[in-house]
Amino acid sequence: MAKVPVQFRLNGSDRAAFVAPADNLLTLLRRGLNEFGPKYGCGQGTCGTCTVLIDGELQLSCLTLAATCEGRHVETVSGMANGPTLHPIQQAFMEHFAAQCGFCTPGMLTAARALLEANPTPSREEVIDGISGNICRCTGYEAIIEAILAAARSGQVRRA
């Protein structure tokens, strides 16, 4: 099928590409734009490691048609750090040893960011709810929950 053009912002910069109408955003990011932040885990919306923000909303890029991103702002984990300065949630993940293999980390960080930007002072239950679409095989979740609560307590994550 004929390819269609799509233009959108990716972590603050303008990007353009030609995509097949059925291409998903994850494939476009990884194969077309060399943006390897979001990972391919299941490709069917059940693991969460491909999570991105689209216009500030949490979305699974494997279930998002690339063409639907026209004119929108896609943010991935790669846009969280400011140069060498880590985002407060990344800093908290590091301090709390909240990653082992790191495969879930892009999705966890993005889900945590969406949560804290909407609700800067979540309860433990709200944190659990916020990451419940993300599977982690290594950490047993506890360190991730603690890191997100610590990032919230630091008061450094601003409401979007």
Partner: peptide, 8 residues
């Protein structure tokens, strides 16, 4: 970290 993750 390993002990917590492994217990899960």
């Amino acid at each position: 970290q390993q002990l917590v993750g492994g217990a899960w």
